[in-house]
Amino acid sequence: MRYALVTLAVSALTAVSAHSWAADAEAGKQLYQIYCTQCHGINGDGKGINIPDMSVLPRDHTDTSEMSARSDEELIKAIKHGGKAVNKSVLMPAWDKNLSDEQVDDLVAYLRHICCDK
């Protein structure tokens, strides 16, 4: 009986966790389409419509090794405060006036999905 209860509790927690992650990433996907695809590409590969005249190419968000080397905190800082805040290009603007903290978290959840959930 005790084993069954523990299993039930673990299943419930897993279900809640998976559900909230999925919801965040789905919201992040919508935000990504609206705010990010112009530069990072509709497939997240860093090849958006704006790149032909860019001096520094946008990050390829599907590059698993590059994206795995970035912590969530780094990604959040880059999104909120722009490329300059993480010693990268000024071509990446600061989005903290446009996006709430929750929306930035949603975007990071989506980035983790397209980079590494293969």
């Binding site: 609206i34 695809t37 112009q38 590409g41 509709i42 090849k47 419509i49």
Partner: peptide, 19 residues
């Protein structure tokens, strides 16, 4: 150049997205 909502007018191309 890419319309009022660019993502709606963007398609992938061999060298990257195009309008």
């Amino acid at each position: 150049p890419a319309g009022y909502f660019p993502a709606a007018h963007t398609v992938p191309g061999p060298d990257g997205d195009v309008v």
